Amino acid sequence: MSIEESIQNTDTTSPPEPEPATETAPPVRRPRRVLRTVGLIAVAAVIGLVGGTAVGYGIQADREPTALPPLNQPGLAYPAKTLPKGQEPEPLSAKEDRQAKTQGDLRKLLVPKPAGARPEGADGWQSLSSYADDFTRPEGALEFQLDQGIRRIATRTWRVGEYKRVEINLVQYRATSGNGALEHVKRQQSIAIGEGKAESLGEPVKGSENGRYFLYPVHREAGYMDQYEARAFIQRGDIAITILMSDTRKIAENEIRSLAERQLGRL
């Protein structure tokens, strides 16, 4: 036997062939690439926006200013130039100037008491505390009047016969505190309507935008005489007019209406 044959017989098995090596796939990085792309786009957009704004401001700054169109106010109520001497309009008389009337002695604007009537209680200026005491809740009335900027109160009260009583109040408010006169009148009218005793929601007072007068049905109570009431609440400028009328006999509608119109006319 030859040496080659002896070797072949001795090593009959051959070692296994090595398996081909397999490469591991690289990690996916696409999301990172997308984020990077989005970031680049955002930066480019910001740069473009800032640059465009700067260019726009530069162009606008170099342009001549454009004149605004004229206001649509033909024929103003006052002259553009001062009128020559001797052509100025005459100032309003005290009778025509409503503000001059109300800035003077407010007591002079009260309706005079009728012939045969006798004064009762306050006649002239009335203090705020005395005025508030006539309300069902004096503390609340006092606080309300102070909040509305009350200025002064002129009062006139008279009695006709034994039982008829009439009271008129001119309550003036400061203009800087709002429209206190209107608020006071609205509140009193609301109370008159909400009491449920008035025969109607009130009748308008001629010559006034918001004035109303109220007639109440008879109030009867055992041991007392019948009681009738009529009230009027009117606002004119910074003054609130309140008229209170009571009697043991029925009050005619014409009586409260006429008194309200005459008092309003004096303002």
Rank of each mutant, 00 (worst) to 15 (best):
S6T: 12
T10C: 11
P15T: 06
P18Q: 06
E19T: 11
E19Q: 12
E19C: 03
T22A: 14
E23D: 12
T24M: 12
T24S: 13
L35A: 13
T37S: 14
G39F: 11
L40S: 13
A42C: 13
A42M: 14
V43Y: 01
G48W: 00
G51Q: 06
T53H: 04
G56D: 05
G56F: 03
Q60P: 00
P69T: 07
L71Q: 10
P74R: 05
Y78T: 15
P84Q: 08
P84R: 10
K85M: 08
K85H: 05
G86I: 05
G86R: 07
P89M: 11
K101S: 08
K108W: 00
V111H: 07
W125Y: 11
L128Y: 00
A132N: 01
F135L: 01
T136P: 06
G140C: 01
E143F: 05
L146V: 09
Q148V: 04
G149F: 01
I150N: 02
R151W: 08
A154I: 09
R156F: 02
T157G: 11
E162G: 11
V166W: 01
V166G: 00
E167L: 13
I168P: 02
I168K: 02
Q172K: 09
S177F: 03
N179E: 10
K186V: 10
Q188G: 10
Q189N: 03
I191Q: 15
A192M: 08
I193Q: 11
G196D: 03
G196T: 04
L201M: 12
E209Y: 03
F214S: 07
V218F: 02
H219D: 14
G223A: 05
G223P: 09
G237I: 02
M245I: 14
M245T: 06
I251V: 08
E255K: 06
I256G: 00
R266M: 12
